[in-house]
Design a protein around this nucleic acid. Structure first.
Lengths: 139, 139
DNA sequence: ATGCGCCCTGTAGCAACTACAGGGTCAAGG
DNA sequence: CCTTGACCCTGTAGTTGCTACAGGGCGCAT
């Protein structure tokens, strides 16, 4: 059923844990090259597509944007180039992730504060609503 | 120039650190009620709008979705209701934030691993590209 | 009266898909 | 041979939370 070097889109989807629609969409935005077609106009994928889609999915799992993945793919294709550029992209991405992490950490603290104060009485004296309401102190 | 109980949209935007377009958009999606209009068809806002928009912005800063903010606003308006529902929304949101936090933490670890191995030689033996490439182990 | 800054409506675009609608294809079972 | 059902095709619209115009009107100072 799987990649004997000629899979349908459904086979490829199953093999890479991707939805069929997402694969077609990657093709549309030129991340995945258009494959050959069968007599009945079905897409036919080979192992190269499998590898490439695997790369894309792994990059996405690591939180790279599609543009970053595109760039990484281009670099990976040019195998004799220095990998300094790859390193740069990855480091920039890590910095971004670390920024988001600290934002979220601060946010979680604030939420825990707000929730901790709720005695679950009536809304009229709910601490959460109060914390949301700007009592004069608007920036 | 500000909220003498009749601000233009620009005044309100400045007072709440929101863009004019965003305010119009909140009106369109029924988060902010449509205000009175001047003779020249300008929106005229009062202190109630100021308070409500402040609430919305604070909720957004805390990472609530617009739908959650909408729900919180509805609850806040009904001041004699128990605030259990408010607590539920806030706790669900905190759980979500904590889930994202742990995802991002794991991601940062993976990225640091991947980056740490890059000797910056040629792409042919780049550890980052290798880490992205699915070497047989496709799920 | 003319310039400038603000305001108006409406539409299109971003990321990264997802969810149809309205069809065609293929293999198996009756 | 024909039908059923699972899959495939294209194309369009929707999601979230805005942002960015385009093409015009309003208000005030000079």
């Amino acid at each position: 059923m799987a990649h004997t070097s000629s899979m349908t889109i459904g086979d490829l989807a199953a093999a890479t844990n991707t939805s069929v629609e997402t694969i077609r969409w990657y093709e549309k935005v030129n991340l995945l090259p258009a494959p050959a077609r069968s007599a009945g106009n079905y897409r036919l994928y080979g192992t190269e597509h499998l590898r490439r889609l695997g790369f894309i999915r792994r990059g996405r799992d690591l939180g790279f944007t599609l543009d970053q993945v595109r760039e990484l793919l281009a670099l990976a294709d040019d195998r004799k180039r220095s990998c300094t550029e790859v390193d740069t992209i990855a480091r920039a991405h890590l910095a971004e992730v670390e920024r988001k992490l600290s934002d979220l950490t601060r946010l979680a603290h604030e939420l825990r504060d707000v929730i901790g104060q709720c005695g679950c009485g009536s809304v009229a004296d709910c601490r959460i609503i109060e914390a949301l309401s700007p009592h004069g102190e608007l920036s």
